[in-house]
Design a binder for these strands. Sequence first.
DNA 1: TTGAAAGCGCTAACAC
DNA 2: GTGTTAGCGCTTTCAA
Lengths: 368, 368
Amino acid sequence: MAGKRTRKHSLVKRLDIHDVARHARVSIATVSRTINGVSTVDKELARRVWKAVRELNYFPNTHARALVSGRSRLLGLLVSEITNPFFPELVQGFEEVATQRGYEILIGSTNYDPERMKDCIRRMIERKVEGVAIMTFGIEGPLLEELAQRQIPMVFVDAAPQRALMSAIRVNYRQGIREGVQHLAVLGHRRIGFISGPLVQRSAEMRKAAFLESVREIGCDPPQEWVIEGDHTLEGGVAAMERMLQLPEIPTAVMCSNDMTAIGALRVLARSGIPVPEKMSVIGFDDIHLAEFVYPPLTTVRMARSSLAKAAVEALCCHVETPDQEPPRAVLAVSTSLTVRQSTSYAPSAGQEESATAINVGRSEKKQ
Amino acid sequence: MAGKRTRKHSLVKRLDIHDVARHARVSIATVSRTINGVSTVDKELARRVWKAVRELNYFPNTHARALVSGRSRLLGLLVSEITNPFFPELVQGFEEVATQRGYEILIGSTNYDPERMKDCIRRMIERKVEGVAIMTFGIEGPLLEELAQRQIPMVFVDAAPQRALMSAIRVNYRQGIREGVQHLAVLGHRRIGFISGPLVQRSAEMRKAAFLESVREIGCDPPQEWVIEGDHTLEGGVAAMERMLQLPEIPTAVMCSNDMTAIGALRVLARSGIPVPEKMSVIGFDDIHLAEFVYPPLTTVRMARSSLAKAAVEALCCHVETPDQEPPRAVLAVSTSLTVRQSTSYAPSAGQEESATAINVGRSEKKQ
DNA sequence: TTGAAAGCGCTAACAC
DNA sequence: GTGTTAGCGCTTTCAA
């Protein structure tokens, strides 16, 4: 009931640019210029403005700024689901770099549901994001159109449509996968299988291709049955490994397209009484937080998701801040490298000497 | 170089309320009223407005709305770090409920760094959030003042300062912890230890208190040395369990204040050749994603973080939407319950009969 | 170099 | 019931 009501909607007068101007005995234009770092402002006036800002504890209203400047300083981040262990590190990196550059981030989780994805896109458009990073596994074409129509820059992973304002971050899958395969080779493995992700996904396909190249490089050519399609889930890993164990001949090492798949595979092996790594080595991909804690701790190819995030923010900002020149459409930005833990060891039948020889031939593997 | 430049800043004219009004042959006020669901609008005109909105694919500009209405429809969410496995589920729940209610969420990770926390608070103030959920483990008083000064509602977990616009979500720690202790009792355990969190944290203290009450309830009173202070990290769990194993007498079961602590404890036990659960049972708390995947899969007390998030959003919205009546300061909203996995079993020396008897006496434990 | 004033897109008071 | 209009807080001409 009490309280001085000096505005329609609120009980307290909110500080605005006029208050600062009055306090510093200048015009609001000068306050605005000072805060925005326009160089023509007189030193003395600028000093007074900053003093007033400090004393009054003034923060500019971003909505007003956005309205007049047409720049929201908002970036959208579209992910599949935050609870998927792949994403938290990505979100963290994205937030860090974006806020550093003065952007705020709007997160949308699609939960693999086209309706929710549509909703996320609507929210982003309403809030006038200046760019969107599409980090979901797959996206509906028509929804992209919504963004494209509004000239909103987009960045993708691996591959982007060939259009203006769209770019892609490239991940160097080969690098880490090759390291993983060489690591196995050094340990004497020659019979190496692979459980892929869903091959409709570009990144899953690229990982598989990188694997095949790498095994051929060490002179192996695994039979088709040793290359099984999974779906990047734990259950998929379980199913794939079960199929593999039914084969008349099984490999001594299996590489997986992501860690969840590898963890599923590990489960089946544990259940089947096949000790890892003694009877079979397993390598994952991604290096999610979990990988370190499963049993045995998973040897895996690490993809630095914070670099991915950083590259995405930069690509977006590049579009926004230099709208005239078309930026490079694809940035090779993210490297991968092997993290050796305890799910890999010597091939069961490989003699000690053979391995020792191989070690000298192989390349060293270390964490990046 | 081409492109029709109809505005200062952009190459494309952005759709606004005037375009819709023109298209529907009504005034902008009618468009605004229609979109905001004001009931006095003529049916026919409303129909025309909606048609125009659809045809033009119009989305209102939230910045303009925020500016004039004083309502940003933005909620702040302050967390310690998104990569801490405790948080993703919380963030997901928060996003889900907030967007359902038409709010957008602004995430800030403090990374346990006061400077970054300060930065997060600044960002939230600049963007004019209508409320902030403080989900960090601890916060600096002066920073709260910044928000309080600006009449921004806040919601905390467990305990909030006794002030206007601040409320707390209460977690029913006792419920789940009691279930856990009873579960151990049923399995014949009488020698039960506890590794707490950092006791400066209110929630850690509450968990410890709940544990002590619960063990006393089953007629046990563990010696002081069996109640060790950890710090809710894996390393803390390692250190605490190492200390415990040095004791002349060790318990047959240990409850931990959170899952990371339990995972640390599990490591030490594995290293020391003490099989879990045969020689020692371990129970965690939180039920983070990881718990299911460690070896052995961790029996743990689940706290539904999505309910926590939901309660937080509701408390905040309650403040915002009915500013006159002071809402309940504390909401008992989050229940906990036991999830039994494989890190718990019969007490080593307990006879079969004893356990069997106990089973009938004890309460059944199931997932909620 | 500075200040006055227009206007960003919208909501809400007020007049009809 | 509908339209006209005055701002919301800011940036950015434009004139001085």
